[in-house]
Design a protein around this nucleic acid. Structure first.
Lengths: 240, 240
DNA sequence: CGGCATATTGAAGACCTTCAACACAAGTGG
DNA sequence: CCACTTGTGTTGAAGGTCTTCAATATGCCG
């Protein structure tokens, strides 16, 4: 279970550094040698390894370069409650800033590469560099807006709309990062999807079958093919 | 429907400026006359007036001084989907920073006093003053964490747990602001609560009756008395 | 006090969960 | 290579929770 960090070259489902959410600060940082201690580039994490646990000292944010991570909390009855999935370009750890402690577990769903942002150095940098500050400010605001929309999804939409939106959102998130394809390889299990969307795994399974029967998706295990994007979009109307 | 701003002295359910979330910057600001153009203090808003609409130019954040506001979006079928309730000390408008546009309506549920934060001046100030920056950074991080916990509430808890948590959270939010009392006067309708918690108004009504029968609450319209705080806390275990 | 909005309660039904059986895939050891 | 195991996913049937519809009650503001 011990995470092994090592340098590694990009694999599939990675983003180029030019599309990364921290690109506007990361690239200049690497050039300005004075700041390059802030970012530790492209550390490799093995599938199932824990990147963040609530008991670890809060000192790092993680920028995902390739692969996929999930964050979750543990309930009293030892169940995992999925709170987020992180794709290339995302940043994990924002929710810990206020309390200065991680509140979740964050675990790799596939072999994953992350760039570490050392928190204290990061804060100093934000403080000095107003361009970086505005970038971070925008990223956090975007996360608040995204969560607000997810809250509406949970409070107002049925199972079919939730799963449809989930798949469509994955499609869009990959597309925005340069992976425009109707083929989606899910990194997460049905159990993880269920936990995230507030449904049971059986319901996830049934809705996948239903979306297949109505020729919107083709589903084979973790391989999803979007056959009718227009219909899929209808499920997620008024979301993001 | 036109909002009438005017100076007004504090009424019940207000906070003292010392307990306001922006106090660490607001009070010094008022002293340093050079900055006092950032905050417009204690504007009065009439019940049902709209403070924010999506079509207004994004140029102001609102700090609530007294009263209560709700934020909501409108669905295709003209239904209000409640996204948040704002109490004294809260700040409304964070989610608009990234897109530089308000994404919600924000409406006063009672006569309400707000302090306006002019966005551009505010940003300049954050940029210059690292104490203010850290405060805002923490407030946004706290909001992300709070939303994450609310997402878990919606995805994992039943109607009774949701409403119990809602009431307990109101109790705590007022307590943190200096109004420690088992008596809670709801500013919002059953319809608003239902929209917020993702339930129907009938379910809200039934659960209130049930909590009354089990002697946890005493419910009389908008007046709630917490009769058994320990039992109420049990509903919201693992939340906030 | 009357009229309208808001809230409560009951009954029927929809949607999702739970339980249980089965299918399928990946990994292990003989 | 196959038998066996284990984890993961699918499907059916029964049951529970919440919603919807409808009727009634209560509260509020002129």
């Amino acid at each position: 279970m011990e995470t092994i960090y090592k340098q590694l070259r990009s694999t599939s489902y990675s983003i180029s550094c030019e599309l990364c959410s921290i690109q506007p600060m990361c690239i200049p940082l690497m050039k300005e040698k004075t700041h390059c201690h802030v970012v530790n580039q492209k550390m490799c994490i093995k599938k199932n390894d824990l990147v963040i646990t609530p008991d670890k000292p809060f000192n790092t944010l993680f920028v995902i370069h390739s692969g996929c991570l999930k964050s979750y909390t543990i309930t009293r009855d030892k169940e995992q409650q999925i709170t987020n999935f992180y794709l290339p370009g995302d940043i994990a750890g924002f929710e810990g800033i206020n309390t200065h402690s991680y509140s979740n577990f964050v675990q790799a769903l596939t072999d994953t590469q992350v760039c570490e942002l050392k928190y204290n150095e990061f804060i100093d940098l934000i403080d000095k560099n107003s361009q970086v500050f505005k970038l971070v400010f925008n990223l956090m605001s975007a996360e608040i807006l995204h969560q607000q929309q997810f809250i509406l999804l949970l409070s107002q939409k049925n199972a079919e709309q939730r799963l449809g939106t989930f798949i469509y959102t994955l499609y869009k998130r990959y597309a925005r990062r340069g992976h425009i394809s109707f083929n989606i390889k899910l990194s997460m299990s049905r159990h993880d999807i269920a936990g995230y969307l507030g449904l049971s795994i059986e319901t996830i399974s049934r809705i996948f079958s239903k979306l297949q029967r109505s020729d919107i998706l083709q589903v084979k295990g973790k391989h999803i093919l979007i056959k009718n994007l227009q219909e899929l979009i209808k499920f997620s109307a008024s979301f993001e």
